[in-house]
Each structure stands twice: as structure tokens, then as C-alpha cells.
Design a protein around this nucleic acid. Structure first.
Lengths: 147, 147
DNA sequence: GTTAACGTTTACGTAAACGTCAATGTGGGT
DNA sequence: ACCCACATTGACGTTTACGTAAACGTTAAC
């Protein structure tokens, strides 16, 4: 099978595959500090190349960083994100390992779908609030769209 | 207008509206410890009645607790949840206040919808993993559904 | 040649959200 | 009268995810 080993939502322009990034550059792009990126490395989430003492980030590293950040936005702990990222790396040769991967993936998807139910419920509630407030403003002859 | 002041996703059986709950009872129901519930109170998120020194929780308190927990599952900080809960309580008499409420509500909904995009993207990725692993197992003549 | 902008490691500090005692009170059953 | 389950208020400890400062090296600009 041999699938992409590095996660990527939408391949980030195939010709930038060779680019390398400095820590400050990635920090800016993902709105974090260099400290944060080094911290992720301490936790084993990314392993950039080194040129002497300096870190050099590949397109793959960049993708992992994006993935980590998205995981965080979804409320996962770094340890959980670590495990999830590992799912892309695990040995897929044995049938038992494939089954285990399938099991974990399904379990995670179930988590995510539960989260989506929570999310949709909150969205519905606040849309309801909006509708009521808009109606009330209209009824008072005020334009809901002006500040 | 005068809408329900207490949030509730699906009114929790209208005749249990009078029930009162002990801290341990709510702790069990929401899978937290009493300590956690007291902590929420310290943070001003719930204000149960007291019978002497003991806390008595109403159906409204229970609903708030559920709301808090859902907010946490969605990755919001308690301080944010506090603000959001306040949106149900704020004075809706003035037009300016209605506008402000509308603004905040829309902003929050935008947050939630961004989160849903992240969520859907991750779900899609893992479903893709599942599909690939299932295909690989089938091709090897193994049943993906057996353990 | 020094200032500036970037990089490094080491180490201590911090905010959030509780956990974990300890000491104490209270109400019900036997 | 005694035990047990449950309640209370402090107060200190813990985990996670970094922030912040110190002390230092490297490259480029002026």
C-alpha cells in the first residue's frame, strides 16, 4: 500500500516540497512562539534536521506542525496528538497491526463525531439566540445589521 | 421577549423541574468529582442554594452543569464558558445591549464553525485511513470486522 | 567593530483545572 | 451510644503547555 507517511489536509503545493523553514518562519505562520515549537520537539512531536546547532524544518515538519495545531484547536492534549500522529507512522505490515490501527482509528472517529454532536448543538443554540435577538430588534424598528 | 433564562438543549422532562440534587448525585451523573463542582462554584459558574452549609442543586443548576461540561468538551476555558453563560442572562431591554448580544453570539458561532471545519477535516482524514486499512485487509483475505 | 536580528541551552515561573489530604460537621440506622 | 456515608472548608500538590529571563554563539549590515 505505502501511503503518504506525513499527514496533509491538502498537499501544500507540490513544488514547495523541497523548501526548508526556519523556526521563526514557522512560528509566524502558525502564530506561536519559537519556544512552543522547541517544546513540541522536547515532547517528541517533531524532529527537525540540524545544521550544526540550528534547526531546519522540512515541508513535512511544517505539515506536522499544522496537524498538531489543529489537534490542539480540537481540544486534544499533546500526548493524545502524539499518539494520533503515530498512527500514520506505525508498521502496517502485519494483519494484527492493521486491525489495531483500524480499531484505534474508528475509536478516534467516534470521539470526533461525539464532539461534532456537541458542536452542532451549541451552534444551534446560539443561532436560536441570534434569531430571537434579530426578531426583537426588527420588531423595535432597529436594523440588526448596523453597529 | 422573555426567553428561558437557563440554557437547556432538550428540556429535561418537565416534571423533574422541581427535583433537587445532591452534589454527589450530580457528580456521578456528569462523571466529575464533588471537588470539581465546588470549584465551578468558586469560579462563579453555578450558585446552588444552601440548606445550612449544604448545597442543594436545582434542575437549572443541573442544566448549567451540563452546559459547562459540554463547553469543556469543546475545548473552551472556564472563563470563556462563564462569559457564554452570561449571554443568556444579560439584560435584553436596551437596543444597544441587544446589538452587543447579537455581535457576541455571531462571533461565537463563527468560532464554532471554524472548529467544525477542523473537525470535519480530521474525520475525513481518519475515515480515509480506515478505508485504506480495510481495503488492505480485504486484499489479504482478512475480515476487517473480526478481532 | 559593534549593533541587530536571529539562533541556541538551561532553568525557573505561571495559569488553568482540578486532585488530595486533613480536620470537622451532620443525619440516619442499629 | 456508635458507626457510616455524606457533607463542609482550608490548604497544599499536580499536570499541561507553555512564558520569561539569563547567558551565550553566528551571520549580515552599517
Amino acid at each position: 500500500m505505502s501511503v503518504a507517511v506525513t499527514p496533509s489536509a491538502k498537499s501544500p503545493a507540490p513544488r514547495d516540497t523541497q523548501r526548508i523553514y526556519s523556526i521563526a518562519e514557522l512560528a509566524r505562520e502558525f502564530a506561536v512562539t519559537p519556544r512552543t515549537i522547541r517544546f513540541y520537539e522536547d515532547e517528541g512531536l517533531i524532529k527537525p534536521r540540524r545544521q550544526g546547532t540550528q534547526r531546519l524544518y522540512s515541508a513535512g515538519d511544517r505539515a506536522r506542525l499544522g496537524w498538531i495545531r489543529r489537534g490542539q484547536r480540537l481540544g486534544f492534549k499533546l500526548a493524545e496528538i502524539h499518539e494520533l500522529l503515530d498512527l500514520y507512522q506505525v508498521d502496517r505490515t502485519g494483519v494484527q497491526q492493521l486491525r489495531e490501527l483500524l480499531r484505534r482509528s474508528r475509536s478516534h472517529v467516534a470521539d470526533l463525531e461525539a464532539k461534532r454532536r456537541d458542536l452542532d448543538a451549541q451552534i444551534a443554540e446560539f443561532k436560536e439566540v441570534e434569531a430571537q435577538v434579530e426578531a426583537e430588534l426588527k420588531q423595535r424598528g432597529a436594523d440588526p445589521e448596523s453597529d
